[in-house]
Amino acid sequence: MKVENLLTRLPAAKRAEAFTELLARPGVRVERIVSRGQATPGGAPMVQAQDEWVLLLEGAAGLRIEDSDEVTLHAGDHVWIAGGQQHWVTWTAKDRPTVWLAIHLD
């Protein structure tokens, strides 16, 4: 058995978000995302075919899903993003890593 910790040995993520696939099985993919000051460009929302459940493990971020107001996420907050929905990460903390756990469901 190999025990690992999602919050240790984090990538710097200073130029771009860092994505680490943790598990991939038919119909499900789990990844850790590390952000540090990144945001989604206003004119280029993220849209994916599959549903996504995201949990903020550490740090803070702003998130907006189409037709809704921006919300601020803190450690422990989680959100469901339905497949096909436009969404934007409006900001992430610059002074410390923002660590997400994302579960993608086909």
Rank of each mutant, 00 (worst) to 15 (best):
Leu101Tyr: 06
Asp51Ser: 05
Arg9Ser: 10
Leu105Lys: 00
Arg32Cys: 06
Met1Tyr: 04
Arg29Asn: 13
Phe19Trp: 08
Lys94Cys: 08
Glu66Ile: 13
Ala49Val: 03
Val3Asp: 05
Glu70Lys: 03
Thr72Tyr: 03
Ala44Lys: 10
Ala82Phe: 04
Gln85Glu: 15
Gln85Pro: 07
Val89Gly: 01
Ala60Leu: 04
His78Ile: 02
Asp106Met: 07
Thr92Val: 10
Val99Gln: 03
Ser68Pro: 07
Ala18Gln: 00
Thr40Gln: 07
Ala49Glu: 09
Gly59Phe: 00
Trp91Gln: 06
Ser35Leu: 14
Glu21Ser: 09
Pro41Val: 12
Ala93Met: 06
Arg9Pro: 03
Phe19Asn: 02
Thr72Met: 08
Arg36Ala: 12
Val30Arg: 11
Val54Asn: 06
Glu70Gly: 04
His104Gly: 04
Gly37Ser: 13
Gln50Val: 11
Arg29Ala: 13
Val47His: 02
Gln48Val: 11
Met46Ile: 14
Gln48Met: 14
Glu66Cys: 07
Ala102Cys: 07
Thr8Phe: 02
Ala18Arg: 00
Gln38Trp: 09
Thr40Trp: 10
Gly84Ser: 12
Leu57Met: 06
Leu101Trp: 06
Ala13Glu: 02
Ala75Ser: 15
Pro45Trp: 08
Lys2Phe: 06
Ala24Ile: 00
Val30Tyr: 09
Leu57Arg: 01
His87Phe: 15
Glu21Arg: 11
Pro41Trp: 13
Pro11Ile: 00
Ile65Lys: 09
Ala39Met: 14
Leu73Tyr: 06
Ala12Asn: 10
